[in-house]
Design a protein around this nucleic acid. Structure first.
Length: 828
RNA sequence: GGGCAUGUGGCGGAAUCGGUAGACGCGCUGGAUUUAGGUUCCAGUGGGGCGACCCGUCUGAGUUCGAGUCUCAGCAUGCCCACCA
């Protein structure tokens, strides 16, 4: 039996959600004259059901978008679906579900749940990346990249996940394991499509310096991933073999300490040496066999450093010494040149290897004071002073590097080189549920792009999901086609694109989502870009966020969008939601559902809890008790304000009300403290609305007390706060705010109102508390008038027994006076 | 091993600048109201002491009139990177 004054959140919340959509209050217009603000949460994958962990992410984005809208911005806040991907296809294999049907029904459910949370999205911009009208432009951009030489197909050792049965990009291998399923990744030689992200390495790095609206942690992770290192690449002749070995080193100052050359088993020189020295063939092949199929993790980290001598020798170009060439497991074929100079005295890895295989160790760097002498117990890897290095002996490392680099360059043997750890983005996937790669392979014409007017290359329906081989490769009707150039028989590429391609430009498509003639309109996109506030978890630090930055630079370079080539001006990393101490996730089985929570406690209570419990960047523990406090808050607001709803219409909020006494002053001040907090948290982009909502508690607590007074209904200050309250609540508890606002007699939604500016006069106080310290310890708090002079304050302080008792008999040495705040008396 | 964070009551957390430590909420305790009350209202709630007081922000040093805040060292936790030559 609901009591008269109980706020019935169930019916109220649903009614407002309907009205907001009917009135299209979140639809952003391109021609709106107000300054634009693009708020965006990372594109969700429609996995099925939302839990309150998702709600945490969307609630923050929604509060920011609502706040900025009320602060006078033309806000665009879109939502859509990252709809391609493996789970849909796995459901097809396991349960016979059609991936599209499965995905679409998940989208339906998640859209319903997101609406249930009352988030103010502009649904007119919604799309799913599996819509042909979207992925068509994936294909179109793929061809543009291909034309510029930025998409290329190449056979190389790649990461293969045996469980998901597809290749993976380097970024998608974590600790040698597949980022999705955790299976140990294998190495395979396959011909695959790559995007040349390495061409953008320096710009991706330089751009990070400008992104001061990004968490430093994410920038550091990207810098680390790109991994720029400066050094020298030089070549060594191989004795009696017609070949040279190129090596890359950042420590060319240690070149006189080279005692061996280590090469990766895949290095081409190995074949030439084997040809020249057939007796070593067996040994090398046996060794290589032990490594075959082993992932990079196993080869480079789990296994001990090992190797076999090839029997050949390389010549140090400066010292002319001959040093043995070894095939080893610790040199990566893909990084640098696939070969390194071995300097055991000054490199830990080389030291270990030399010790194990009895290779000599030649010290060529000593400490600046020259005290360090062989035999070395471990590698000395610091810079120092050169020794045993001919004319360079005695030089410091840094100048020696420059001098030796110049000498090698003059000899025509070397160049200074910048090497990057990042590798090209491998985008082919041997799976069905993704964007088909729009390239046809013709025996005569080679790789031919599908003409633009034949896009999209549609995913065929009704293919068989056997779990054996790629569905597209097994479908002759799809694969067999004619060459667009010569008309002869040709084959379609049977692979689909990495779904990270889909999410690399979706944020631009939102701005012109229904364009059938182009990916998006240049003028419209340029008006809205870049994204002003991007919100998402840190798990995409070196995947999505790096790919999207690369892709957007390409879009700007090619003139598809004008303006800065960084797409996300500011990035906010949400903390995860924990439940029972663990991250809330479906796979852990510790989820708290949205539907149940909303039904039991209400949307606004859920939103307020998620905002209030912790700063948004921190991990937050969900508790069923904690949300009860927010349910109480919602009810308290209603019980406090609603009874006064009919008393007065249209209280002016642009000026302060008459305040009859200190209680009224305090109440109005509390409101303005909350307004100021909301403003500051938004402007500084800290978004610590946990503090702002705490200030709202104080307002409501004071209001509840004031309303109990007999004359509350005729008190201008109380009525002023009642009328202002919906505005300050609106970004955080949007339904409660609008319900109260309409009860107060206003026709238009409160979300179309202006946020109120905190009034300095309301924030000012006419009595302040002066803290009196003796030797830094608080001894008294005296109420004083603002602006009190030091001498007057001192006199008041010395009238306090708690102060004089501490000074008792001591000499006052010093007085520290902070106006209106503190007086510290130093006595000894 | 390297890098970056973080460390405050029983719990989540507050505390622009170095200036009243613990706002606000949960929980707990006591009281009120109610036929009843799991989501009502009020009050109290860092520890110690009867007490004017003493102690207290991971530990230890330091700077300062004054340190949760700054510096150094250590410990703990979390995240990221980890044979990249």
């Amino acid at each position: 039996m609901p009591e008269e004054r109980t706020y019935d959140f169930r019916s109220v919340e649903r009614a407002w959600q309907r009205r907001w959509e009917d009135e299209r209050i979140y639809v952003a217009r391109d021609d709106d004259p107000r300054p634009k603000y693009y708020a965006l949460e990372m594109l969700p994958y429609p996995s099925g059901d939302l839990h309150v962990g998702h709600a945490k992410n969307y609630t923050l984005g929604d509060a920011i978008a609502r706040m900025q809208r009320m602060r006078g911005y033309n806000v665009v806040h879109p939502m859509g679906w990252d709809a391609f991907g493996l789970p849909a296809e796995n459901a097809a294999i396991q349960r016979g579900a059609d991936p599209e049907t499965w995905t679409r029904s998940n989208i339906e459910n998640m859209r319903r749940q997101i609406r249930l949370m009352g988030t103010g999205y502009d649904w007119t911009r919604e799309f799913a990346t599996c819509d042909p009208s979207y992925y068509r432009w994936n294909q179109w951009f793929f061809i543009r990249l291909f034309e510029k030489g930025l998409a290329y197909k190449r056979e190389a050792p790649v990461n293969w996940c045996p469980v998901d049965r597809t290749v993976l990009a380097n970024e998608q291998v974590e600790d040698g394991k597949c980022w999705r399923c955790g299976a140990e990744v294998e190495r395979r030689n396959l011909a695959q499509w790559n995007f040349k992200i390495t061409d953008y390495a320096d710009r991706l790095l330089a751009g990070l310096d400008r992104l001061d609206g990004w968490p430093e942690r994410i920038r550091a992770m990207q810098r680390n991933w790109i991994g720029r290192s400066e050094g020298v690449t030089f070549s060594l002749d191989v004795e009696n073999v017609d070949a040279r070995i190129e090596v890359f080193t950042t420590r060319v100052d240690t070149i006189y300490g080279v005692t061996f050359v280590a090469v990766a088993p895949e290095h081409p020189v190995v074949a030439k040496i084997v040809e020249r020295f057939p007796k070593t063939r067996r040994r090398i092949e046996d060794f290589t066999a032990t490594l075959r199929g082993k992932g990079e993790l196993e080869r480079t980290q789990l296994m001990e450093k090992t190797g076999v001598p090839t029997g050949a020798y390389a010549i140090n170009p400066l010292s002319r010494e001959r040093v043995p060439i070894w095939v080893t497991n610790y040199v990566l074929a893909e990084y640098g040149t696939g070969a390194v100079m071995g300097v055991p005295a000054h490199d830990e890895r080389d030291f270990d290897f030399a010790k194990k295989h009895g290779l000599s160790i030649a010290q060529v760097i000593t400490t600046p004071d020259g005290s360090l002498r062989a035999p070395l117990a471990q590698a000395y890897v610091e810079d120092g002073k050169l020794m045993a290095s001919e004319e360079y002996s005695g030089m410091k490392s840094a100048p020696a590097r420059r001098a030796i680099a110049a000498r090698l360059e003059a000899m025509g043997r070397g160049t200074t080189t910048i090497n990057y750890r990042i590798r090209d983005w491998l985008v082919s996937r041997q799976r069905y549920w993704g964007t088909p790669i729009p390239i046809v392979s013709c025996e005569r014409d080679g790789l031919v792009p599908v003409p633009d007017d034949q896009l999209p290359v549609l995913l065929p329906r009704g293919v068989a999901f056997t779990g054996q081989g790629s569905p597209l490769a097994n479908d002759p009707a799809f694969v067999n086609t004619t060459c667009p150039r010569c008309g002869g028989p040709a084959q379609r590429d049977p692979d689909t694109m990495d779904t990270f391609v889909d999410s690399s430009w979706y944020f631009v498509r939102y701005l012109d989502p229904h364009d059938a003639k182009a990916s998006f309109d240049r003028a419209i996109a340029s008006r809205w870009m870049p994204v002003d506030q991007y919100i998402g978890g840190a798990e995409h630090a070196v995947m999505h966020l790096l790919y999207a930055r690369f892709f957007y630079k390409f879009l700007v370079d090619e003139g598809y969008v004008d303006g800065d080539d960084e797409p996300f001006t500011r990035l906010f990393n949400q903390g995860t939601l924990l439940y029972g101490g663990e991250k809330m996730s479906k796979s852990r089985g510790n989820v708290v559902g949205i539907d149940d929570t909303v039904e039991k406690y209400g949307v606004d209570a859920m939103r307020l809890f998620l905002l209030k419990a912790a700063p948004p960047e921190d991990a937050l523990e969900w508790t069923d008790e904690g949300i009860v406090g927010r349910v109480r808050f919602v009810q308290r607001v209603w019980r406090g304000a609603e009874p006064l709803a009919g008393v007065a219409r249209a209280i002016p909020l642009d000026r302060l009300p008459e305040m009859r006494g200190e209680r009224q002053r305090e109440l109005v001040r509390a409101l303005h403290v909350a307004l100021e907090s909301g403003k500051n948290e938004t402007e500084t982009r800290r978004f610590h609305y946990n503090v702002t909502t705490a200030k709202l508690d104080e307002v409501v607590n004071l209001l509840t007390a004031a309303v109990r007074e007999a004359d509350a209904a005729s008190d201008p200050a109380v009525l002023y706060v009642v009328h202002a309250l919906p505005i300050v609540l609106a970004p955080f508890a949007p339904h409660l705010a609008d319900e109260l606002w309409s009860k107060l007699g206003y026709e238009r939604s409160v979300h179309l109102e202006r946020w109120l500016d905190p009034d300095p006069q309301a924030l000012a106080t006419d009595a302040i508390t002066l803290v009196v310290q003796v030797n830094g310890k608080v001894r008294a708090r005296i109420p004083v008038a603002p602006g009190i002079a030091e001498d007057a304050a001192y006199e008041l302080a010395m009238a306090q027994s708690t102060v004089t008792a501490q000074i008792d008999g001591k000499q006052v040495r010093k007085r520290i006076f902070v106006p209106d705040k503190l007086l510290n008396i130093v006595a000894a």
